[in-house]
Amino acid sequence: MKIEVIGSGCKKCKTLFELTEVVVRELNIHDIVLYSNDINKIVSMGLMSSPVLTLDDRPILVGILPDKERLKEIISKNL
């Protein structure tokens, strides 16, 4: 599975990336989490806020920095 955090380079994006890495490990998922600053990817998905979290190029979280528990919930719901 491709897990990617895409940001505009903001601090929030970096934090979401780090949090996602932790959550993914706790969920026993062995794929690595990618991090990108390519804003064109966000635009081409039709989105305008960052950060964006995608699973297999499908956005599941946009413009929100959740806490760990909620992120876990959102990721497991979309697996």
Binding site: S44, M45, L47, L65
Partner: peptide
């Protein structure tokens, strides 16, 4: 040339997230 579907269903912020977002 590129058209996008504007209707994507995504999670909303919780109350705590709103307050954190606003503070930040």
């Amino acid at each position: 040339q590129n058209s996008i579907n504007g209707n994507i269903d995504l999670p909303n912020m919780t109350r705590k997230e709103r307050i954190n977002y606003a503070l930040l």
